[in-house]
Nucleic acid binder design. Sequence first.
DNA 1: TCTTGCTATGCAACGAGTTGCATAGCAAGC
DNA 2: GCTTGCTATGCAACTCGTTGCATAGCAAGA
Lengths: 185, 185
Amino acid sequence: MALDHAILVSLLEKPGSGYELARRFERSIGYFWTATHQQIYRVLKRMESDGWVDVRDVPQQGRPDKKEYSVAGPGRDALSAWLHAPIEPESVRHDLAVKIRGAAFDDPAALIGEVRRHRQAHTDRLEHYRAGEARDFPSSGADGPPDAERELQHAVLRGGIAYERMMIAWLDDVLATLARFEAGR
Amino acid sequence: MALDHAILVSLLEKPGSGYELARRFERSIGYFWTATHQQIYRVLKRMESDGWVDVRDVPQQGRPDKKEYSVAGPGRDALSAWLHAPIEPESVRHDLAVKIRGAAFDDPAALIGEVRRHRQAHTDRLEHYRAGEARDFPSSGADGPPDAERELQHAVLRGGIAYERMMIAWLDDVLATLARFEAGR
DNA sequence: TCTTGCTATGCAACGAGTTGCATAGCAAGC
DNA sequence: GCTTGCTATGCAACTCGTTGCATAGCAAGA
């Protein structure tokens, strides 16, 4: 049930509407957590009725009004409790790995295109992350007091970058393995 | 709905009962896909009624009888169709990343223990993978004709190893970032 | 005016995944 | 005889996540 907590963190970083949260989940938060607008609206409604968040109607010009959510006391407490409780290392689910093992019983060569597509997607994401890093974290050295929020956001982004690099290298490894079959025939 | 396909792949590698599949999902398959015995039994029942798998009652000595499942023609066709269809790069969900960003609004220092725990879990997994690699893939050089099933299993395992190594390095990075806050106070 | 497109919120239905519980065979040890 | 523990299968209830659809405000351009 960490979607609740992901939303609370995002609202602490900056209050916003369900729609805006959905945008963020396509961008920065989405690097490590995905959610559709449906999920977000549902959770926001539940958290509102539980008193975890406050709502404020915000009239806008040139576009429909929105409801801006911000974290209330009980929501902060709930988040704090979760932050202090241990969680289990996440379970991984890689469709592509299933495909790779399955390809042995079908047509390994047919996998090459698919792996290349995934490699491209990860390359794109890596570039996207690196552009974001250059934009949002330009100074790598010591300049002023350490800002926890900023430093930790950067650390998470570095994790995303490391993940994409690892994936690209691994997919190259897979492609090399597949090429060996081609050569061996 | 890739659990279906993960089960089909596992049954192609070796027929077995729901219980045995659940064991495998705690081991090799579980490196990249998790499932409880409940899910597995439910899916097996559905696939049986759809004619994707065949069942065989196997009496055993010293333990309860089991139902051994193996892949039937339609199941193989369904798997093949899935293997040839493109899939989207998987969406990631990292609870720990949510915690790290959330810690900025709570107590960053309280995160250290949790990050260390996760680091340990990944170290353990890495060792487990490497032991499995040494056991199941002892020969790295060319010895005989390339065996697709074996080579692709090895490639997936190398992916798991690369993932754990990346995670350990990243968690060290996070710990170093947290240590800077401590030093900065 | 009409369509397209983005912002903004939401319902309903379904499918996937989790948790708690229940049953049963058999072995081993107290 | 009783408990503990592993093998083996399964139901029921619930929560989480996905998909399709619906509504509505407003801007811009054909």
